[in-house]
Amino acid sequence: MINLIAATRAEADPVIAALKLKRISTNFDLYQHDHIQLIISGMGKCNVATACGWLANRTFNEEAAGATSVAWLNFGIAGHATHELGSAYIAHKITDLATGELWYPHQFSNNLPSSELTTVDTPLLDYLPDQLHDMEASSFIKATRIFSDAELVQCIKVVSDNRTNPLSAVNAKFANSLITNSVEMIIQQAEQLETLSNTIPQPETRLFNLLHSRWHFSASQTTQLRRLLQRYAALLDSAENIPEPLQQKTSSKDVLNWLKGQVDRADISL
């Protein structure tokens, strides 16, 4: 699954349209299609942190999305002293100007130009040398790295203003057109991130749920059950249904004993 985060509707709209996302929540501006979710957070660090926390809760909640591995991509516009308007960069270093905290998002390739990115609380009077400026990235990366592996969290920014084209001239229409021009690249990056996230092995859930709902397992037995099912899948089989001999078992202890017997007796050649 991939979660996309944009600060404003103007930035989000081109991606929503290209991916044919449908609005699914009114608590937040949340859009979805299949395994892609997009949230419009609002501008600034506080808004993005709240949106990421809310979306993470929803994403990992089994009644909602029930995902176990999630990639996150923040996209939007940013300023830079000298870079050309419309040029796009993946962030390779993100600094929070107010706190001095910094992060280095893992780079998987050098296909896309990259840049340092500094997150500011309020727009600066002048640009810092050789870095992009935005108002969300540091908060986004800090919040999402709590929920996902660092490699699955990335930021892409499109240059909207520079020393010759000031921030005061940037309006919603212009932001929208900049993202529209980069929409293919943003989607491509999102797909690559999601593919990467899908390489993380998912724990066996179907058989676990079947067994867990039929017998009563204590907390420590539940931990044993998960590990035994994982070993069972690695050594013997990824069973979809309750194996026949287990149907007769009358207690959770018997279930665990049977599974342990199976994995301990399995062929142990590699």
Binding site: H92, Y104, H106, N110, S114, R145
Partner: peptide
Amino acid sequence: RTIYCERYTSVFNNNSQNFRLQKKN
């Protein structure tokens, strides 16, 4: 791509890094 950093510990062995994902590249 070259990226400069203060100390290598900012890019090596952070809590949320995943060895398996990094090993891909």
